[in-house]
């Protein structure tokens, strides 16, 4: 059945690209977890918040306009200008760095040496607070995010594959851009952590706090840096998901999809987050394609979690995670 085979190929390709987006979200989790041992439940909301802020700045929306109007009885909503995409991204990044600073200053600085579960609870609180602030700042309606990335079917791939196999692959241009951006982002992150002073300091902090202090590393600075980088990753994820399905509350729920990705790849491994994302992406698309029709479809909703569950039983540290060895 060559047709069936080609169709499966197309499914796998699309799965890989969906996986890239999962990996992007998972990456944010891994960065913070590695450096500070905090499982940041708010990573998904950070992506939503970043996307909301980006749209808001681009559209020249007045932040907190509803609140301002309600208090002062005014009717302002827009500044009346449009900010170019690149500038808006830079401005959003400034906001994310500010957020990182605030998170460190007002929350985690006061929770040093606390139980991991406490830190985790704090991030849940943070998620709700940020959701609320995002709503008040920019409004709750679904927004369209268009920073000029190409969208729709890639004609070249369609035509080429049609000529070669007699069957045109449907690949979305947006997925291709997301893949390219993700590759650049991961490359940059790895280069940063391997070859720069701050990257080395970051790895040092992730390894041993006490030793890091003794060589002159400020933990506070490193944690702000890590949260900023996680904010940047969240921004990229927010842009990609936002461009794909609009900026809306459900964006924060993609964080839940990152959980099985992390269980597969391991919570402490950047390559793990990527491979995990790809496996989940391909796995759920292929499963839906092959097994879906037999069980009435909609397998994409649960496939990832079942796969993660199986992994938890047989390899709890994930594919790339550090092996858990208890020494007695």
């Amino acid at each position: 059945m060559p047709d069936q085979f080609l169709f499966a190929m197309e499914v796998i390709l699309n799965g890989l690209m969906a996986g890239v987006l999962y990996a992007l979200v998972a990456l944010g989790f891994v960065l913070i977890y590695k450096a500070s041992g905090i499982f940041n439940y708010a990573q998904g909301v950070m992506a939503l918040f970043a996307a909301l802020t980006l749209v808001g700045i681009m559209e020249g929306q007045v932040p907190f306009s509803h609140l301002i109007n309600a208090i002062f009885g005014t009717e302002i909503h827009h500044f009346g200008w449009h900010v170019p995409a690149l500038l808006a991204i830079a401005m959003t990044m400034v906001v994310m760095v500010g957020l990182a600073w605030a998170v460190q200053k007002f929350i985690f600085r006061h929770l040093v040496n606390q139980e991991p579960i406490l830190l985790f609870m704090a991030t849940i609180g943070l998620a709700f607070v940020m959701e609320g602030i995002g709503d008040i700042m920019w409004g709750a309606e679904i927004k369209k995010l268009d920073i000029g990335l190409p969208q729709g079917i890639n004609d070249w791939i369609d035509v080429t594959t049609f000529e070669a196999f007699g069957y045109g692959f449907f690949i979305d241009n947006l997925d291709i851009s997301a893949t390219i951006v993700a590759i650049i982002l991961v490359g940059a992150l790895i280069a940063f952590s391997q070859y720069t002073k701050q990257g080395r300091a970051l790895r040092a902090v992730a390894d041993d706090h006490q030793a890091a202090l003794s060589v002159g590393i400020s933990l506070n600075f490193i944690w702000i840096l890590v949260w900023s980088i996680a904010g940047f990753v969240a921004l990229v994820a927010g842009i990609m998901w936002g461009a794909k399905s609009g900026v809306q509350f459900s964006l924060s729920l993609i964080a839940l999809k990152a959980l099985p990705v992390l269980m597969l790849g391991g919570f402490t491994s950047i390559p793990g987050a990527i491979v995990g994302g790809l496996i989940i992406g391909v796995g759920e698309k292929l499963f839906e394609f092959l097994i879906g029709p037999m069980v009435g479809g909609a397998t994409e909703n649960w496939f990832a979690y079942v796969l993660a569950l199986i992994f938890l039983v047989f390899r709890p540290q994930g594919l790339f995670g550090e092996k858990i060895i208890e020494r007695v």
Partner: peptide
């Protein structure tokens, strides 16, 4: 002022070279 620890506090995941390089951060 640099120091070593009684119970060795090194960065176990990093190479010897990288460990020593962290000493240069200051």
């Amino acid at each position: 002022i640099a120091r070593t620890f009684q119970n060795i506090a090194l960065f176990n995941g990093m190479s010897v070279l990288d460990n020593v390089m962290t000493g240069r951060l200051t």
